[in-house]
Design a protein around this nucleic acid. Structure first.
Lengths: 139, 139
DNA sequence: GTAACTGCAAAATATTTGCATCCTT
DNA sequence: AAGGATGCAAATATTTTGCAGTTAC
């Protein structure tokens, strides 16, 4: 059990339950983003499919994880950084999807450059989704 | 019937059918992106839900439309520009989703700036998804 | 003890597939 | 006429909801 897992739950006023601890731990350990199905298969029959849906939703609401827009429109989630807070969630970094192995990375060190929007448009969030081949698949 | 609609279908070696003509026309007329449900409601009972699925898939395969990665993971489609060709599809422009009215825009005149990826990552496609308030909703 | 969380069942929604029929070329 | 496209039925997948029982605090 990782220390930070329980800490994170407490910080967000969530009660400490098995499913929350274990699902959050999966995110902490995972390098990439996770889909509902990933969590389901990694956890076997340990918790109900519905519990996974609800846990993910709770985490998103609390700003612990965020959804990632993906080119194939599958739903994936990744850990938020500190800048994310409940309700408002700031996540202007780059996501990378490997076409080859399917892994989704959050490239925290690459930041999204400013773009100038047309007159009248205001932005609250920007998400840059890059597809291509990742480090591992480029050999 | 718009001239370009039939032209586009011919150019892509697709037979000219009612559903293809009308669905493509919806895209041409629409300022924003369309979801399956939008097409279904705009067309009433004119064609089957399954036909819409298959038509959208065909259009995507031919590079006539493309899916838009969205933060809420609803599947939306928009017309591709000329640079899109069958199989490979190049679409490095900016998509804007209005948090308020839900409209998705393709901002063709804004282009995605280059970002430097970490060592070993190569990109084939970039998609910048901006959320916020659109022109109409900013009043 | 109480409020919140989970599991199960079931409903609602979304997507895919098979096949017979119809339409485009 | 032949191949492809459509409509219908049904299978499959995904997500949501209600409720009763259980657990965290």
């Amino acid at each position: 059990m990782l220390y930070s897992t329980i800490e994170t739950l407490k910080k967000n006023q969530l009660s400490i339950t098995d499913s929350r601890k274990k699902i959050l731990e999966m995110f902490v350990r995972s390098k990439g983003a996770l889909a509902h199905a990933d969590i389901e298969s990694q956890s076997g029959t340990e918790f109900d499919r519905v519990t996974i849906y609800r846990t993910l939703q709770t985490f998103v609401e609390k700003g612990i994880i965020h959804t990632i827009p993906t080119a194939d429109n599958s739903v994936r989630y990744a850990l938020c950084k500190d800048a994310c807070t409940e309700g408002h969630h700031r996540d202007d970094h780059v996501h990378f999807m490997c076409d080859h192995c399917g892994t989704t990375y959050c490239l925290d060190h690459v930041h999204v450059p400013k773009v100038s929007l047309p007159e009248g448009f205001t932005s609250t969030q920007m998400d840059l989704v890059v597809s291509g081949k990742c480090m591992k698949c480029n050999h």
